[in-house]
Amino acid sequence: MLPTMAKEYSEGIRRALAADKPREARLAAVAFQTKIATYLASTLASDQGTEQARAGLALYTSSRATFEDLVKILSVLRARDALATFYDALPLKIDNFDDKAVAKVDELLNALQAKHPDALPFALSVLIARLTTPWQLIRLATKAANSKAATDVARTPYAIAVSMVLDRVDDKRMALHDALKRKQILVAKDILTDIYAVEYALRVRINLLDQSAWGERLNTLMRAVTEMVDAEVQSVPKHLRNVQHVLDSRSLRSHDSLIGRLTFLAWKGHDALSGGASYCRKLVARTSTTLADFCD
């Protein structure tokens, strides 16, 4: 059945494109998606159908994840209209995912999940691509939590947002590896700066992170990053070791600076520090004696 549907779809699309009829091509694509969704839903509704699907996929690959991908495809096809509505409702770029923006997106996501509970990860994938600063996706989870403790954040419907941000850190880790392998040091520098910024954001905005699975994963990723950077620094000839390597510069980890530490304290003790992060930044402009006393 599937081969027949695929052949009919292919021929129909070819005719529409050859005749320069894009609307007809789009309608054919929608009709084909509907047929596939109906077929998959019917097939996977029974244990026998599920086993047949698994057996069919096993002819092409031994990966068990392939069947899970098939289920995800079905979820996307079922929710495609709702996802398209969500997609159209989002700004093309979200420069600052502040409280107002979070509330608006939360409203859109609630409407989506009311009809398609399984569509959340796909909606968040659309959202994170619209964020100028992708790690801000975690604000959906931290804003919905009773506290900033990792255990409370993990209980929210948007906990998956934290895992998605960690996925991006992992992607950047691999990009860093490729850049270093090609000796693209300036590219590696930018990637490393982004990694450090995301690490800092996660540690600032989620309390007791190290006591969670998220923290364990982040620590593992950062150890891998550190090992790569150390290996690159050590590859520099000994007679040049007195010149600081660009990847070993403290400026890449701006949160380790005084302003960074003060901002960290402001986020962690927002109620204790009047004015929060802005208050700490003002302190930096004061005398070094005042700053030293504050840090003590």
Rank of each mutant, 00 (worst) to 15 (best):
P117L: 05
T85V: 06
K100R: 13
K104T: 07
D106F: 00
L120S: 07
T133G: 00
E107C: 01
L124Q: 14
D95E: 11
A123T: 05
V126K: 08
R80W: 05
A79S: 13
P117F: 00
L83A: 07
V102C: 09
P91M: 10
I138P: 06
L109K: 11
K100T: 13
P117A: 00
I128E: 07
A144F: 09
K93F: 11
N110L: 13
L108W: 11
D118H: 11
A103R: 12
D106I: 10
Q113L: 10
A84C: 03
D98K: 05
A101P: 00
F122C: 04
A82T: 00
A103G: 06
L120D: 12
H116W: 06
I94Y: 11
A101R: 07
W135P: 05
A145G: 11
A129L: 12
E107P: 00
N146A: 12
V126Q: 14
A119T: 02
D98P: 04
K100D: 10
P134D: 02
F86M: 09
L127W: 03
T132E: 14
A123C: 10
L131A: 06
K115R: 11
L131E: 00
D118A: 06
Q113A: 01
L90C: 09
R78E: 13
Y87A: 05
R78N: 10
T142R: 07
D81P: 02
L140T: 07
T85M: 07
P117G: 01
Q113G: 11
H116P: 03
A101D: 08
F86R: 04
T142Q: 10
P134A: 09
D88G: 04
L127E: 10
V105Y: 01
V76L: 07
N146H: 10
L137N: 04
R139E: 07
Q136W: 06
T132W: 01
L108V: 04
F97N: 01
D118L: 06
N110S: 12
L109Q: 15
V102L: 04
A119R: 02
E107S: 11
D81I: 13
K115M: 01
T142V: 15
